[in-house]
Nucleic acid binder design. Structure first.
Lengths: 344, 344
DNA sequence: CTGAAAGCGCTTACAG
DNA sequence: CTGAAAGCGCTTACAG
């Protein structure tokens, strides 16, 4: 005999009463409850999740879907680990467990998510790596699973999301560079359909316009978000007839290749070419000169994501009356030595 | 009506036959099976995991326990993401899903694991961040959950494990440095009880002995595995009465602080002080001069971990007759510019 | 080859 | 306040 039945037998009461006592139902004699709780500890009882889920139709767990592809691995640095800790700090207050669901790189993300949802091992989902047209959003909406996405999609505000402040960063980076008298400023964005690329580019254009600077399509460099991509971006930069004096990068991994290419051309980062990166990461601290970039708290971002998820879960809406959150996450400038006035 | 009952109703057969057809049991008419499979696709049927787990007592999922503490996040770089992709490449062949279980930093790892095991959401576990005396090993052994650990523990070979080749790396690093005529070589290890520290130190001592070099306790620097720790290690190095000409680091994060401290003291890395790191990571490529270190394939390591786990799972032992694997994972030297003969 | 039935461990109306 | 019973969705001996 095992499980709740064993406990009931041991205490000589019914399994119903044991269950009610364990679950904090009000209609249980306090004396009985104490005995049950003590026996549970004594016998090391833990509720079987399968039995509970089957009966209740909910799991007490929340899923975070990530991609385990080599590209994601290379670019995410400590992003997910930091996020996870923040998520849990909030979820644990509701006794919700976080399950990280890594989509294998060979599997279609939409198929994978469908499988995980059908398995019913979580009550709600957090999606990352949101695409501009992301079929997963329709999937979850249709299946009536509460969810929030890390990153905007192109569907406007039909669901809850939090996204990094790509526009704000592009704006402030341009402000800073223009303040340092730069007039020709390049920007490096990924060549793929990923949403952040176009958002970053829009912010860049807006900021130029605000300063009365012309937009030159030649200064938009489409490059892979890798070290090699940064090297190639450097190549393109140097090949331009009228060379820019500054460049904005949307991924810090590109900075290594760019630094190397510039150094080969005898150009000093921060003096002959100003470089500003996007997110400060442990990695960017390895660069010399140190990269000027933007800081954010992954822990707090995770916490906000968790709260915005709770706000769309029926069981928790009363406690988190936020509605469907649409939030741009602010980022703070970190001054490095990688930028400065043109010509040093 | 939903689930298997809906399918059965739709096809006008019993739920038992539907289940048998879906699960590939041999005693089903081929014609019936085809109809069931077609209907399953048509109606978008996916088995409910709770029902299945409850009945079968197994889940078809494997858990990877990681720590989400800020320290782990800072030091792991792409370690887990890379590992995960390798794990899945093997697990998916057995239709096993991987669930990543992140232990919150506020929770005791042993309590967390106990909770996850009791929930019965996975059939087997992979543990990381193994301690020298790790109570989780006794917990899983006692609960009769198949598991493998990433990292040795102090219990010898009572369970399956794979660990990085700390001894080999220390040995080859010393060989290389001695070959470059270094005689006084320091080593930086973490001040905590983590197993890799003492293993690395043992390898270092063995290698010195092999070259007839004396072991000087002053040359063992206990430092935090952080940027700040590297800076402090540099301080200690410079403060030694007879300054060493080379140093081995067990975490590359320390290299930033060390580089900075050496630069402040007008010492050139690779010329005035040779530095060799442990694992090559995307980060170490950000350093200049580039760090000499050791390379491994996270994807292959993940694959081997998965195979060694399958080998201890009763359902898969026949296919993976490896027994309980105890494997030291080889690493390959990557020459950087951070070491060389003393004095340049 | 198929159907009817039992039962995995739990929660929750329902009666008392 | 407690017990007896139903049932969540599935798999699997057992009969036929």
């Amino acid at each position: 005999m095992k499980g709740i039945r064993r406990l009931a037998k041991h205490l000589n009461i019914s399994i119903g009463t044991v269950s009610r006592a364990l679950n904090g139902k009000p209609d249980v004699n306090e004396e009985t409850r104490k005995r049950v709780l003590a026996a549970a500890v004594e016998l090391g009882y833990e509720p079987n999740q399968a039995g509970r889920s089957l009966r209740k139709g909910s799991t007490g767990a929340v899923g975070l879907m990530i991609e385990s592809s080599p590209e994601t691995a290379a670019n995410s640095d400590n992003f997910f680990l930091g996020l996870i800790d923040g998520l849990q700090s909030v979820l644990s207050r509701q006794s919700l467990d976080l399950l990280v669901l890594p989509c294998p790189s060979e599997e279609d993300p939409n198929d994978y998510l469908q499988r995980m949802v059908a398995r019913q091992l979580v009550d709600a989902m957090i999606l990352s790596a949101t695409q501009h047209r992301d079929p997963r959003i329709a999937l979850l909406s249709g299946a009536d699973i509460p969810f929030v996405t890390m990153g905007r999609a192109g569907f406007g505000d039909s669901h809850a999301w939090i996204d990094l402040d790509f526009e704000g960063v592009a704006n402030r980076a341009i402000d800073r560079l223009v303040g340092q008298s730069h007039r020709r400023i390049a920007v490096a964005v990924p060549p793929t359909d990923v949403n952040l690329g176009s958002i970053f580019l829009d912010g860049y254009k807006t900021a130029l316009r605000r300063h009365g600077l012309p937009f030159d399509p030649d200064l938009v460099i489409y490059a892979k978000t890798t070290e090699q991509g940064g090297y190639v971006a450097g190549d393109q930069l140097l090949g331009l007839s009228e060379r820019p004096t500054a460049i904005l990068l949307v991924y810090e991994l590109m900075a290594i290749g760019l630094y190397r290419r510039l150094s080969e051309a005898q150009l000093r980062v921060g003096k002959d070419m100003a470089v500003i990166g996007f997110r400060e990461s442990p990695r960017s601290r390895f660069l010399s000169p140190r990269l000027t970039c933007f800081r954010m708290s992954l822990h707090e971002l995770g916490g906000s994501l968790a709260e915005s998820l709770l706000a769309v879960m029926p069981q928790f809406q009363a406690q988190y009356p936020l509605g469907a959150v649409h939030m741009i996450w602010p980022m703070e400038l970190v001054e490095g030595e990688s930028d400065g006035p043109p010509g040093g």
